[in-house]
Amino acid sequence: MLFNTSHKNKAYTTKSIEVLGNAFSLLEKIKRGGVGSSRLIIKELSTKLQPINAQTIDDNFANIELRPKGIIIHFTNRLDRYSWIIPYYRLVVYRTKTFTIHANGHFIKFNKDKNYLANKKFINKMMDSKIEFLDLDYYDG
């Protein structure tokens, strides 16, 4: 679910809490060592995620926020901010020449550069949270 969150968006707030749960408390954020990534450079967006007024002149950046039942990817285009809500049971991650997040037939590809390397620890934390939430013990090698 993609929302324009440039301004306060009641539908986004309601849906994000309903699907992903409330944001972590300050104490929980400290215990987890943070719940947000630093910025990642977007290489490509699937057509359904591209804003109507998309500009490809500048690099677009995104960051990922952890929630108890999923993630939110926040990204910008021009002066607009968009938030893509992804529950863990729909989250699929590919690490090939690019770092790609898929859900519901849509995707965001990120460059694998110094920003990706700085976020590797966060990405591993995100995948561990998914496994913990979905109780996927059989993935432990």
Score class of each variant (00 low, 15 high):
residue 55 Q to E: 06
residue 61 F to Q: 12
residue 90 R to L: 12
residue 116 Y to L: 01
residue 134 L to N: 09
residue 27 L to M: 07
residue 40 L to D: 05
residue 58 D to M: 02
residue 52 I to P: 00
residue 31 K to T: 14
residue 101 I to H: 00
residue 54 A to R: 03
residue 132 E to H: 09
residue 86 I to R: 02
residue 19 V to M: 14
residue 139 Y to P: 04
residue 30 I to C: 11
residue 44 E to R: 06
residue 94 Y to G: 04
residue 58 D to L: 03
residue 93 V to W: 02
residue 119 N to P: 10
residue 88 Y to K: 00
residue 133 F to D: 12
residue 62 A to W: 03
residue 7 H to E: 08
residue 84 W to R: 03
residue 2 L to G: 00
residue 128 D to Q: 09
residue 45 L to V: 01
residue 6 S to T: 15
residue 127 M to E: 15
residue 79 L to W: 07
residue 41 I to E: 11
residue 86 I to L: 03
residue 112 K to H: 01
residue 15 K to V: 05
residue 67 R to Y: 15
residue 2 L to P: 00
residue 11 A to E: 09
residue 68 P to K: 12
residue 6 S to D: 05
residue 48 K to N: 15
residue 79 L to I: 07
residue 98 T to K: 05
residue 92 V to G: 04
residue 137 D to R: 12
residue 58 D to V: 03
residue 61 F to R: 11
residue 57 I to N: 02
residue 119 N to E: 09
residue 39 R to S: 15
residue 111 N to A: 01
residue 9 N to P: 11
residue 132 E to M: 05
residue 128 D to G: 02
residue 36 G to L: 14
residue 118 A to R: 12
residue 107 F to D: 01
residue 114 K to P: 00
residue 14 T to Y: 03
residue 3 F to D: 03
residue 66 L to H: 11
residue 49 L to P: 11
residue 38 S to A: 14
residue 76 T to R: 08
residue 80 D to R: 10
residue 69 K to Y: 05
residue 129 S to N: 11
residue 30 I to Q: 12
residue 49 L to S: 06
residue 102 H to D: 12
residue 15 K to T: 14
residue 141 G to K: 04
residue 18 E to D: 12
residue 120 K to S: 01
residue 92 V to Q: 14
residue 94 Y to H: 11
residue 15 K to Q: 10
residue 85 I to T: 04
residue 85 I to K: 06
residue 9 N to D: 13
residue 60 N to K: 10
residue 115 N to Q: 11
residue 105 G to N: 06
